[in-house]
Design a protein around this nucleic acid. Structure first.
Length: 203
DNA sequence: CACGGGATCGTCT
DNA sequence: GACGATCCCGTGT
């Protein structure tokens, strides 16, 4: 069982629910003629307009954030700290700036390619644990922001039948958003697989 | 293992 | 001109 997630999946309205459903799905990239993939084991939901931690808070529509307003099923990739390209999945209907940050994957295919991209000799946890490093391992850069996930031979997400029950999923506050105020910084919209070692650190 | 700091540049004010 | 949805390395324990 192996099917590529389609627009019906991405364009549902509940980004928090979708963030949990994305756990266990498989992200695949085909970049520079190299196939790499991994099981998504950690996500975070961002939900404009009300979510103060979201780049599109109050529907702020700028050059950077405009792809978040597109209909669900495209990538939102931006540069963080001048160094890291962070990969998000845009969800919801056109005009709803919802996105899911992928924070951790368990590598499956193309492990040697990922090691090369990361300049690592040997596989270990931090090959793909963390939003910046997993983008690097998968070959994703902000050049691909706005790129479709549903009809592309470059990047897509598959359902290969892995699934998790709700007691295998830990919900906790999102990381690195102290500026978002008491309420939004504590909303438990970070989701990760309890027993996976491929999730990011940081409390 | 916990921490502290530096890297580095696009984005928005 | 300030700062960030991060990571890595060094230090100390």
């Amino acid at each position: 069982m192996k099917k590529i997630l389609n627009l019906d999946f991405y364009q549902r309205e509940d980004v928090v629910q979708l963030s949990q459903e994305l756990l266990g799905k498989v992200i695949v990239t085909n970049i520079d003629n190299q196939i790499t993939s991994g099981i998504i084991v950690e996500t975070e939901a961002y939900k404009a307009p009300e979510d103060k931690a979201c780049h599109a808070y109050l529907n702020r529509n700028t050059n950077r954030t405009k792809v978040m307003f597109e209909a669900g099923g495209v990538a939102y990739i931006y540069l963080c700290y001048g160094i890291h390209h962070l990969f998000n999945i845009v969800t919801g209907k056109e005009g709803m700036a919802h996105a899911i940050l992928v924070r951790g994957i368990e590598p499956i295919e193309g492990i040697q390619t990922m090691l090369d991209r990361r300049n690592m000799p040997k596989i270990k946890r931090n090959l793909t644990a963390g939003p910046g490093v997993l983008s690097k391992a998968l070959g994703l850069t902000k050049a691909l922001t706005g790129h479709a996930l549903t009809n592309s031979s470059t990047m897509w997400i598959e359902d290969r039948g892995y699934s998790f029950t709700s007691d295998e999923i830990i919900a906790s506050p999102r990381v690195g958003i102290d500026y978002a105020g008491e309420y939004w910084k504590n909303v438990p919209w970070r989701f990760r697989i309890k027993d996976s070692k491929w999730t990011s650190k940081h409390k």
